[in-house]
Each structure stands twice: as C-alpha cells, then as structure tokens.
Write a protein that binds this DNA or RNA. Structure first.
Lengths: 336, 336
DNA sequence: GTGAAAGCGCTAACAC
DNA sequence: GTGTTAGCGCTTTCAC
C-alpha cells in the first residue's frame, strides 16, 4: 500500500501537507492540492484503515453475533444488517455463536479489544435457557453498545428490535377460526426460545377464547425426525383441521404429511407457518406464511446501533425497543 | 479500554517494562512480572487489536465476499470459513456482493485498505457472465492473496476450492440409468453459473452415452415461477421418469409437482437434486441429494488462505486447486 | 533488570 | 501556504 510518507517524499513536501491536500484543507495552495491529488490518484492511494482507526479511536466496524447462519431467517437478518451497515460506511465482523453461551461470551470478549465499535446480536439458545446476561452488561459497561434482535434479554438495558410474535400467531389462529376450523394444532421446533414461547402463547390465547377447543401442541426437539413425529401426531389426532407452525420447516412438512396421508389442502386442513417466500414454494399448494420482514429487522438493528455510535458526545438517547410487525400472507394452503 | 500506559503509570514503571512483562520477556524481573500481570488481570487488560495491526502490519482478519447469503449452500460455506478462521485466530469481515460485479469490486477495494490480510470469495454471477477478472488480479498484485471457492475464475492465478460438479451429475444420471430410467430430465435455475454449466454437461454426457435418449433440459430464470414452469414441463413431456436438479429448490418442487399430478415417487419417477439434508426434508419421500460438503469447502478455503498468509517470507507455495468430492445420498425418491 | 526512543500511518494543533 | 510536532497503543532495539 502507498502511504502519505511515500507521496510526500516524491512530491518534496511534508506529510501533513499531503494529508491536508487530500482532505481538501483550505490551508493548502490550489496548485499543491492538484499535484498531490494527481499523484495520489496515480498511485491509487487510499488511507490506511487501521491507522485511521487507531487515531480516531473508532473502527467503523460492527460486530455481529449470530447463533446460526443456516437458519434462513437469521441469514436474512444478517443480509439486512450488512446492507444497512455498508450503506452507512460500516463493515461487519461476523461471529457465529452456534447457540452456545460460551462461544457467545468469547466472541464478545474477542471483539471488545478495539476491533469493533459496537454489537448487533441475537441471543444464543443456551444463553436464553440459562438466563445469563452478565457478559452483555459487561460489554455495555466497557462502552460498547449492543443492539439485540429477535431473541432478546429483557433485563439488559439496550436497544432492541423484535417481532410481534404473540400477535402474529394470535391473528393467524383467529383467521383460521373465522373459517370455522375447530381443531387447530400448534407445531414448534423452537420451544426453548423466547420467541417460540411467545408464539405458543399467542396461539393459546386465541384457542382459549373459543370455548370449544383445548390447545393442541407438538413440540419437536432439534434432533427429532420431524417428518415422522408430525406423521405420528396426525395419526394420533385425526380431527386436526388446522396447523400453525412456529418455525420455517414444520409448516412445509405438515402440508406434505397431510397430503401424503390423503388429506386435501386446504379443504380438509389449513396450514400457516412462520417462513419466507422462497420456502413457501416447497409445498403444493404453497404454504401460507407469517412474514417477519427479516431484512427490515436487520436494517433497523444496524440503524439503531449506528445512530447511537454517531450521536454527539453530550447527547443522550433513550433505549428503544422497535417492533417490526409481521404480515400474514395467505396462499392456497388456507381457505379463502 | 485499559492501555499499557495506564498500567505503567499505576505501577510506576515504564510502558516497555509492562509490555515485556506481559509478553513473558526474559529481561524482566520475576517480581515485576508478577505485579504487572496481577494488575493487568485486575483491569482485564487486553492488547488493543488496532494498534497491534498497525504495528505488525497484519490484521488477522479475512475478507469474505459472498454473492448471496440466502443461498443455503453459500451460507453453509460461510459457516465453515468462520469456524476454521476462528479456530486459527482469525476474524472474518463479510461483504455480500448480491451477484453484482460492481459490488464485488467495491468490496474488494474497500477492504484492501488494510482492513484484511486476504480474501476468500465466491465469484458473483454478473462477474462470471461478463468474464471480468481484472479486479481480482489487481487485488492479488497489491499483495492480498485470494482463495476462490465453488464459482471460480479460471484465468486468475490463485488457490481454489471446487466441487466435482461434472462428475456429480454424471454419476447421478448414471445411477438412474442403471435403474432403467429412460427419460431423465435436467432442471436448473443456475444456468448462468460456471457450476450450473458443468452440472448440465455431466448430465449430458451420461445421457449421450446411452443411445436411446436425447438430453431434456429445463432452464429456469431467477424470476420464473418454478412451480408453474415445472408443472408445464411435466405436462409437455409426459414420459419423464427421472429428474436431476442442479439447484436446491428445483428437486423438491419437482417431487411435489409430480406427486401433485398423481405420479408415484419413486415408482413412476425418480428425483435427485443438489441440496442439503435439511431441505431434503421438504418432500415426502425425502429428496435424494448430492451433498456438496459445504462446511468442508469453507474450511478448506480458509485453510488455504491462512497457510499462505502465515508462510515464511521466503517460502513459495504453489497455487492449489482443491476438489471437494460430492456424495450421492439416495433416499426414497429414487429406486433401490 | 529497566527505560528511552523510534516507528507503524494518520490527523491536527501549532508554529513560521 | 507549508512544515513541525505530538500522539493514538503497541513492540522492539538499544542504552544505561
């Protein structure tokens, strides 16, 4: 890489003159500015990022900690974060916690050594189960702001971006009840997560408001064979005429299993699931989905963080919790 | 963050003494080392990464440029890269090119300012279509090594990690022919990519080796409604009894479409697709898949790069092209 | 055994 | 209008 020093030497001026010229300082003569800029252009000079970071004590880099990159929703949020960050001149360093508390702690500590200006993260499953939050608090105490999205730790004071999980399943369930569905089941593979619990509660509320059905819930474990479990579940509960699914796979598998057992979809059974448009293609008829607008969640999270990073020194910003509303997109897996 | 300076002041010694003590230099007295280490521990001192990078002229950071993070295969490779990098003490800065040549160039230039020590990347679709490679060559000329994976630019001299695409579809097609399939179609949504073309060629070769069938290919565009196109394709070619799919969705959609049209799978029609285990769950019976071992591809790519970064100054390493072989995993969507 | 000083690349306050 | 200097946090050579 070319440095100011080299340019200065070649031009027979001082380093600071070159620096000022390139930064359009008023102090420098027109002629000099021109000469400097031309040489800089010629040598393709770009200021060394590391030196700038050291000098200005900020890196313009965001640490992103994601529990699972293979989760389509999380990948999409990452995409939203990256886009917003890039737009505002920030890079992202990505760490994957693999749903492990230990790895989450490590990532936080590793990057808190000056590598990043702040964090955008989604809390790991293990962290949620154990209810651990001290590593978050320590990081914030060090002066590194955190923005949490989707799965959040409620007792940590920071900006948050969440989904209206409770309302989403409540409304989805209600919409099925309106079509006279009487035996609506709830299938989830994310029962351990805060968002999974909220989704179940939304479903429960809708069910309990109608006096003629008890909640009917199938909780799958990560290691379960979903196809088999869902098949057995349908076999056991023959009168199911609706399924709300809390994760992206279960809904698709539910439709395909129902079809496989000879049910007509949506005549005999309606299915709605949290999923993305691309996954909804994996069944015929297409899965009706609860869209989470993952992109927007990511963009919002990055936005909140960058706003905080760039606030004036004396300015105080209150911690915000932004709710990104889901949309219910009905396709042919539900009754019109 | 605590700095050496602060520790030095508090201990009434010089900065260099503190530095040496923490780095276990022989020069420093036992007693001093102890005092220094204790205080460092107490204050949770960690060396400032940025200062270290500036001093040592390397960042221990890898730039990763991915065309599309929502592509499950690419996300999995990213996972592999991250894991290997973390294991070897490197961070990754991720940029998403969105299949755009322009964004790929930008990312490369943006990070070539001292932010990273080298790149792991997958060539964007637009870059492949236009056959542009100068930005890669420029980057390498600047002293930043590149490792390409999956989609590679053959006329750039660098390390590469690829899949045996040609062989994979050749073998998959052959395996169907062995089961007496006579009308095997090929469906692809990635016809524009180098890997897509290789996969089609592997299929073609197998088909042309048998004299009784002409290749039957359906190329889908990104914006196409795959369900509809595949349905129409089946309608037009009623005698199809096998499908090889080049991307992860088409295989699933092919099975579901076939079932929807009343075909029995695998009795009437066999399907094999490039896909991951989790996606193979989205049909009943499960899709038989060509596994690409994305994790390993990522790990290998990171490995090649880091080896090159850490080679001794005078050591020359030849450019390697590593082929990660696919595995054909047959499930019940193909005949036993 | 400890410290002073230089230097990585850059900016900015302060001379001249 | 241009240059000198200090300093961001760190390592390392060289004095003492």
């Amino acid at each position: 890489m070319v440095t100011l020093k080299q340019l200065a030497k070649e031009l027979n001026v001082s380093i600071s003159t070159v620096s000022k010229a390139l930064n359009n300082s008023e102090e420098i003569g027109e002629e000099t500015v021109k000469r400097v800029k031309e040489l800089a252009q010629l040598y393709n000079y770009t200021p060394n990022k590391v030196a700038l970071s050291l000098k200005q004590n900020k890196t313009k880099t965001i640490g992103v900690i994601i529990p699972d990159i293979l989760n389509h929703f999380l990948a999409k949020v990452l995409f939203g974060i990256e886009r917003e960050a890039t737009k505002r001149g920030y890079n992202i360093i990505t760490c994957i916690s693999n749903e492990s508390l230990e790895k989450e702690k490590e990532a936080l500590e590793l990057l808190a050594n000056g590598s990043v200006d702040g964090f955008v993260l989604c809390v790991a499953e293990e962290t949620q189960i154990e209810g651990e939050v001290n590593h978050f608090k320590r990081t914030i105490a060090k002066g590194l702001p955190i923005v949490m999205f989707d799965r959040v730790a409620h007792d940590v004071l920071c900006d948050k971006v969440i989904v209206d999980d409770f309302d989403a399943t409540y409304r989805a369930t209600k919409s099925m009840q309106l079509k006279k569905r009487k035996n609506i089941a709830f299938i989830s593979r994310i029962n351990d997560l805060s968002v999974g619990k909220l989704r179940e509660r939304g479903y429960n509320k809708a069910i309990l408001e109608e006096s003629n059905q008890e909640p009917l819930v199938l909780n799958l474990k990560k290691k379960d064979d979903s196809q088999q479990k869902i098949k057995a579940f349908f076999k056991k509960h023959k009168n199911i005429d609706g399924v709300i699914s809390a994760d992206s796979s279960s809904g698709i598998i539910a439709i395909n299993t129902a079809l496989n057992k000879g049910y007509k979809v949506p005549k005999d059974i309606s299915v709605i699931g949290f999923a993305s448009k691309s996954v909804s293609n994996h069944s015929i008829p297409r899965l009706s989905i609860i869209r989470q607008h993952a992109n927007q969640i990511g963009a919002n999270a990055a936005d909140l963080l960058i706003n905080r990073l760039e606030k004036k020194f004396d300015e105080e910003i209150e911690f915000k919790t932004k709710i990104v509303k889901t949309s219910l997109v009905l396709s042919k897996s539900t009754l019109k």
